[in-house]
């Protein structure tokens, strides 16, 4: 605790290369919806280094959007402190508004304006022009430039996303906030989008990005897994899977659904979740686990049975963490 405190003081006073792009300390946010109080954020803390791609990974209702709105000064937290680029989100909201780029979750641009008109509008309200910061968006904009007179409403999902990113980047923000940019977008566009983010990282922009897709965690430098307003873990993707702690087994048979029921029925089994064509199984104690699984398969007459020891992925970790947090 003491070490942490010291660290933060040091950042505040110096503002040198050690300074963080984003700091969040004990942020609490509650809403009252129809007389019931909803805890959106239950005192979360983290820090994002400059030039990092930091992922906020969690399902709907985890508090991701509230967090983004607090950091982009659109919402006031009930308590806690947060800074963006060294500025306080409450006191210095004007300074922050000048230096961040923001793509809200449901952001859909002006459907009746063309690509160029949309971009020109956002450039101008951020006090700049397309020409002035053309370098910044060049890589992305070139892909949609051939269609620049087309209305945003007539673009495909992937193209819309590229335009939205251009609009968020046009004023050379130092920190980019992307709230669920890949939700509802097909796998091809999602992949392209992440490639663009890695290009941007090379230009030194700090990126805070949220997503409900666990498989995107691996594309971030560091991630925070968040669930019901609580951060379950903060680490590099490798670090998170390294924290899993228990051997993980992947099993397969031709009768997958029955196999799962049989495995779950075994009192020795801690968890069994379907994962694509396999089930991922964790045991409470680790002796002779492989034999136990093979016995289950034999007793149930399962055909085509396979069992492998595997490395956990982020989703395995997320579910394990969910279980320890809400047993």
């Amino acid at each position: 605790m003491i070490a942490d405190k010291k660290n933060i003081d040091l950042i505040d006073s110096s503002g040198n290369k050690a300074a963080k792009a984003i700091t969040v300390e004990n942020i609490v946010k509650t809403y009252t919806v129809k007389k019931t109080v909803v805890d959106a954020l239950k005192g979360i803390s983290f820090a994002v280094e400059k030039g990092e791609i930091f992922g906020i990974i969690g399902p709907d209702g985890a508090g991701k959007t509230s967090l983004f709105r607090i950091l982009t000064t659109l919402l006031l937290a009930d308590s806690g402190k947060a800074t963006v680029d060294g500025y306080d989100v409450v006191k210095d909201y004007k300074a922050i508004r000048n230096r961040v780029g923001y793509m809200p979750g449901k952001f859909s641009l002006y459907q009746d304006l063309s690509i160029q008109e949309n971009l020109e509008f956002f450039a101008t309200i951020f006090n700049t022009s397309i020409e002035e910061n053309y370098d910044m968006i060049k890589e992305i904009y070139q892909q949609i430039e051939p269609f620049k007179t087309r209305k945003a409403g007539q673009l495909s999902g992937g193209m819309k996303q590229k335009l939205a990113l251009c609009c968020a980047l046009i004023h050379k923000p130092s920190v980019l906030f992307l709230d669920e940019p890949t939700t509802g977008v097909d796998a091809v566009s999602r992949k392209e989008f992440w490639e663009m983010l890695h290009q941007l990282k090379l230009q030194g922009i700090t990126i805070l990005v949220s997503t409900p897709y666990m498989d995107e965690a691996g594309l971030c430098d560091r991630v925070a897994l968040i669930q019901k307003g609580v951060i379950l873990s903060i680490n590099t993707p490798k670090g998170i899977t390294g924290e899993f702690g228990k051997p993980l087994w992947s099993v397969k048979a031709n009768e997958m659904f029955h196999l799962m029921n049989s495995i779950k029925a075994d009192p020795e089994v801690e968890s069994c979740y379907p994962f694509g064509q396999y089930h991922h199984v964790v045991f409470k104690s680790q002796e002779n686990v492989k034999e136990k699984l093979e016995r289950i398969a034999r007793e149930g007459n399962y055909t085509g049975f396979e069992v492998h020891a595997i490395e956990p992925n982020i989703e395995d970790c997320f579910m394990a963490l969910m279980n320890t947090h809400n047993p």
């Binding site: 969690g58 399902p59 709907d60 985890a62 939700t183 509802g184 409900p212 666990m214 669930q227 997958m256 659904f257 799962m260 979740y273 379907p274 989703e315 997320f318 579910m319 969910m322 279980n323």
Partner: peptide
């Protein structure tokens, strides 16, 4: 299953399996 947590998503798929059964 858009947007739900991974455990709920799997519970949902369990329902799908049951229906298929």
């Amino acid at each position: 299953t858009g947007g739900v947590d991974p455990i709920t998503r799997r519970e949902f798929w369990t329902l799908i399996y049951q229906a298929s059964e």
